[in-house]
Nucleic acid binder design. Structure first.
Lengths: 251, 251
DNA sequence: AAGTGGTCTAGACCACTAA
DNA sequence: TAGTGGTCTAGACCACTTA
């Protein structure tokens, strides 16, 4: 490295206008290069690929840039990385995708419809077996059960049931969930550290069928959500959407 | 900065064993710090937070570290970033979660069940309206329609229909999809650049009900997938899962 | 003990965009 | 045109894991 009057002259980024054949080394280009080598089976599933150091040298860029590219691929589940061992092409073509879980108010308003939230039930109740299992609590310890529905232009858009573990929560009153969903109250009153989603198809039953104004047994898209605050189970909820509702992800 | 015998002595990482009160500045700790300030409403939804430069100075770390922390938060949808403008707390509490979309073989074998793939139909057909719309093609241009089902211990686990745009695909024969799913053939024969998932609940109909051995109208979890290779529409598929099947994501 | 990925730093330039 | 995020670099140290 050459030093001039107290500062560095580092190897400059390749000039774009110099008409040369130097190629850009963005992390995206490196990611694409790696992806193409995987697709073409130059590197096969389960196989170790070169180390970051080797790739950086080969591609003429910094190791950090290779790291950035490979990190993205690892987050997509395309490669698997372990210290000391190296980086492998994932053995199975499993893929991850990111799903938008919107707040229902936003979702409804994005449709250009009038949003309304309606509390339909509030009180202590023994948890359902699913709720107890999800929260890892005894099924005879009563929890706060809040039921509500969401309307879009007065048509049922979604209904939900949420069990709240009052043992670990600040005082919550009916007023707190009369105007705004329990999830919003939770988000600003508990530091939620992690959670779990499950998505399934189920037939509408009981309150769900009534609130959504659909016959019993109609397919409903069901989203279960469990929230934790460190080691404390905080809440378990089920939201039900009538047919035609889609969860969408681009990638 | 002090220079000694041709090299730098930079400000060293805080020593852990020096008994001092210096705290570590990992990107995770900065992310958590920012998260806590958002949760506590120190920074409210819609509000601009300090610039990377300011945060780096305040927290005593490099801007790149702040950038890494904020990038993660932006990817989760918690904050929104725009050049020249700055970083805002997301106005809506919308959340993103990453979903595992496993290859079915892996999924079945993880259950400890015997996996089997069965081709049930192969031939040119006019696309359904949904398929034509998803692929942005004329509905009178015939596409290759491949139907298949997956078994776990000889019980139906999932069935699928996939439309392939032969106009942009290499030659594909029945043999290519007799033993292995069309998706696997696609993955190694086309450079897929982007795609789209939709998840919904629907009632089983026709072939789907027959193949899954369930009554018509039974709720089935439906996963639609559209694949693109640059600007070319490549495939549209629908996979159907019987009730009780769950898509799960941890976060 | 040694190899590999994970991360931090200081500095630089670039890209986008509101004013 | 100026301000902010996006990225690249060279170097360093750390963390985890296998040998």
């Amino acid at each position: 490295m050459t030093r001039i009057s107290g500062t560095f002259v580092r190897s400059l980024r390749p000039a774009r206008s110099s008409g040369g054949s130097k190629r850009m080394n963005t992390w995206q280009s490196i990611r694409n290069d790696v992806l193409e080598r995987i697709r073409s089976r130059e590197w096969e599933p389960g196989e170790l690929i070169p180390t970051e150091e080797q790739l950086a040298q080969e591609m003429g860029c910094a190791r950090a840039t290779v790291n950035r590219a490979l990190r993205e691929l690892a987050e997509s589940g395309i490669i698997e990385r372990r210290r000391k061992v190296g980086t492998r092409v994932a053995a199975t073509a499993s893929r991850r995708t990111t799903l938008e879980m919107p707040v229902i108010r936003t979702e409804v308003e994005a449709m250009g419809a009038a949003y309304a939230y309606l509390l339909t039930s509030f009180g202590m109740a023994e948890p359902s077996p699913e709720a107890a299992r999800a929260l890892q609590l005894d099924s005879n310890q009563p929890l706060l059960l809040v039921k509500a529905q969401y309307l879009a232009d007065d048509q049922p858009h979604c209904c939900e049931a949420i069990w709240l573990n009052t043992a670990v929560l600040p005082q919550i009153s009916r007023d707190d969930v009369t105007e705004t969903p329990a999830h919003e109250w939770l988000a600003s009153n508990m530091p939620l550290t992690h959670g779990r989603f499950a998505i399934l198809a189920d037939g509408a039953t009981g309150d769900c069928a009534v609130n959504l104004r659909i016959p019993e047994g109609t397919p409903v898209l069901t989203i279960e959500r469990t929230n934790w605050s460190n080691t404390a189970a905080v809440s378990f909820s089920r939201q039900f959407y009538p047919p035609q509702h889609r969860l969408v992800s681009e990638e």
